[in-house]
Nucleic acid binder design. Structure first.
Length: 594
RNA sequence: GCCCCAGUAGCUCAAUGGAUAGAGCGCCGGACUUCUAAUCCGUAGGUUGAGGGUUCGAUUCCUUCCUGGGGUGCCA
């Protein structure tokens, strides 16, 4: 079914046209003054200048036209202020749309799949192997996950790629640190011909300690740093012992990442990383050189990305370092080569920390300029997210220790949910297993919603309170609304009652609820266009508020009028379905009861 | 130095160039014989960092400052 905004815009646009004014001024929006109108059109104000007319005069004509043509659609059409056209939907038309949405045979609640589906790759997560996930990794993971779910629901071919950081200097640092600790291991013997041990010499827990040690050593010890850079270079060139060690790091890290991301309900379609494009780098660089885009400078191979248009400084992008190793400039470029080759995407969204803006700007310029990506065909977007800061207001330094791990955070939040459950004694009669499931869902909902409700690009200071609050505008609030709704539907089903034809709203509370439900398709489009899950949060919260008010105003199970009761059951059913859909798009799941 | 991002209620944050800038928390005051009170209802709280400009209309666009954060050729 067409979205309500489109339907209304078509009606009003025709009225503008009938008045001799361009249709484009007929755009209708949800009203900002809900006590005056449901929807509004501001086009008369915008059209006033080009048509050299008084905006109220235009509004008056359009209004009169609408009163002729759309009397069934609107219960009230009025002109206000400097020329706002205010529209109030008729209750019967409203109910017919809600009915259509509730009985949508596609099971998509009136949301049409994209007419022109795109191939979209979402690059998010981006964990570094060997470094355990910490609280700062929450954002990219759950924002990317939500964007992936939204994009997919809207009908686009969507792939989420974790794009692991597994090929840079950190690996060389760890290898050298291990050599310092036990040089007798066969990995360090260049003459060793294998096979190497099947068992990893280190565990994830070991790595969590080894990496920060190696990293800080690298900062103070020049000789160590040089060795680490050399080791990185040799790893990338294929030294067997280093490759064998690297493989161990990968195996144990991936298992750990799957567990940690799994606890947050974040999953990836592709588990690719920087290392997967290693073989593409050399031919890419050769071609860049042959085509005159890349050249030698100070021992490194660089590409100029400065634009004649920009008068600011723009240093070149370094594809290969003077020691022959490559960094994330080369792997990010080669990953684009790979993605174009394997998936031919229309869009690649990089859900990566905003501090990488300069880096991506250079990479995008380099690949567009050199023809690796066709600017007219593929849109590379740094859909950046803000940083999670420490208590001092500064971003966590991922290389330093002392930052709460993601696993600990998740455990703490779930533990808070358990305490809460015990406190309010709401689930005491449930089986222990179910209580645990509820605590997990409540904890994760609290954590994810608290993050996603903020705009993607904003920074915030990490605060445990923020993630473990269960009242007000929180994840658990939404779960509670859904659960109470389900409870009614469950009891109704036990009594043999079922949903029926949706009637015009019985009061203002139901009216607001029906209106809010109808906003779903436009809201999803908007959130997608903005690549901004916080709008999904906002909608889910407002829908839950509307439902809670409706819940208070009308007692469904006690209703004597059977047609009214069946209608309310239909509205309740649609509400819980939509709420759960939007929560699912946020990556939040709802317990049966709580 | 140059570039990027931010500055909105006591706090944490929303807001698609539109009317009277909204929520939550906190404060104060109400509502459980009722489909789950993790709920609902109400009160108070603002020079949107400052100045200038564009516009019929600016939190939003442009510009100059101020404050904070980030980035800036061999870490990612």
């Amino acid at each position: 079914m067409a979205s309500i905004k489109h339907t209304l815009t078509n009606i009003v646009a025709e009225a503008f046209e009938a008045c001799g004014i361009d249709k484009k001024y007929g755009t209708v929006e949800v009203s900002t003054r809900r006590e005056l109108a449901d929807y509004q059109c501001n086009g008369a104000l915008a059209a006033a200048k080009p048509y050299k007319m008084n905006p109220r005069q235009i509004g008056q004509s359009v209004m009169e036209k609408l009163q002729e043509t759309a009397a069934d659609t609107f219960s009230e059409i009025s002109l206000a202020g400097p020329g706002f056209i205010n529209l109030r939907l008729s209750d019967s038309w409203l109910a017919s749309l809600t009915q259509e949405m509730a009985t949508d045979a596609s099971g998509r609640y009136g949301v049409d799949p994209a007419a022109d589906p795109k191939m979209i790759i979402i690059d998010y997560g981006g964990p570094n192997v060997a470094k355990p996930l910490h609280v700062g990794h929450v954002r990219t993971g759950i924002i990317g996950e939500s964007l992936k779910r939204l994009s997919r629901f809207l009908g686009h071919n969507t792939l989420g790629d974790i794009h692991m950081g597994d090929w840079g200097l950190p690996i060389g640092q760890i290898i050298m640190e291990l050599e310092d600790r036990d040089p007798t291991m066969p990995y360090f013997d260049a003459s060793f011909s294998g096979p190497y041990p099947e068992q990893s010499p280190v565990t994830v827990t070991d790595l969590a300690e080894i990496y920060p040690t190696a990293s800080s050593k690298s900062k103070t010890d020049e000789e160590f740093r040089a060795r680490a850079q050399q080791a990185t270079s040799e790893l990338q060139e294929g030294r067997p012992g280093y490759r064998a060690l690297w493989q161990h790091f990968m195996t144990i890290s991936i298992a750990d990442l799957k567990k940690n991301y799994g606890s947050l309900q974040v999953d990836f379609d592709l588990w690719l990383g920087e290392a997967d494009v290693n073989d593409l780098i050399e031919p890419m660089v050769e071609k860049l050189k042959a085509d005159g885009f890349a050249y030698l400078s100070e021992g490194a191979i660089i590409i100029d990305v400065k634009d004649d248009a920009d008068k600011k400084e723009m240093e070149p992008l370094m594809v290969v370092r003077s020691n022959g190793s490559v960094g994330y400039e080369a792997t990010d470029m080669a990953t684009i080569v790979q993605r174009v080759r394997d998936y031919d995407p229309d869009f690649v969204w990089y859900v990566v920390d905003g501090r990488q803006q300069h880096h991506f700007k250079k990479v995008f310029r380099a690949v567009y300029k050199s023809g690796i990506a066709d600017k007219n065909k593929i849109s590379l977007e740094h859909t950046y997210n803000g940083t999670v800061n420490g208590p001092d207001g500064k971003p966590f330094k991922t290389r330093d220790g002392g930052v709460m791990s993601l696993q600990v955070l998740v455990e703490m939040v779930i533990d808070k949910a358990r305490q809460r459950l015990a406190e309010i004694d709401s689930a005491s009669g449930y089986p222990a297993e179910e209580q645990e499931d509820i605590a997990q869902k409540v904890g994760i909902a609290a954590l994810k919603f608290a993050d996603l409700v903020n705009h993607r690009t904003g920074d915030y200071a990490f605060d445990l309170e923020r993630f473990s609050s269960f009242e007000g505008r929180t994840g658990p609030y939404l779960l509670y609304a859904a659960v109470r709704n389900r409870s009614i539907l469950r009891k109704a089903a036990e009594e043999g009652l079922s949903a029926g034809q949706i009637l015009p709203p019985a009061g203002p509370e139901e009216r607001e609820l029906q209106l809010k439900l109808l906003e779903l398709p436009d809201l999803l489009d908007f959130a997608f266009d903005q690549r901004a899950p916080n709008h999904l949060c906002d909608y889910a919260y407002n829908l839950a508020i509307a439902f809670n008010r409706f819940y208070r105003a009308h007692h469904i199970l006690n209703e004597k009028d059977e047609a009214q009761q069946a209608s309310w059951l239909g509205v309740a059913q649609l509400t819980v379905d939509v709420l759960e859909l939007v929560l699912d798009l946020l990556g939040i799941s709802v317990p049966e009861r709580m």
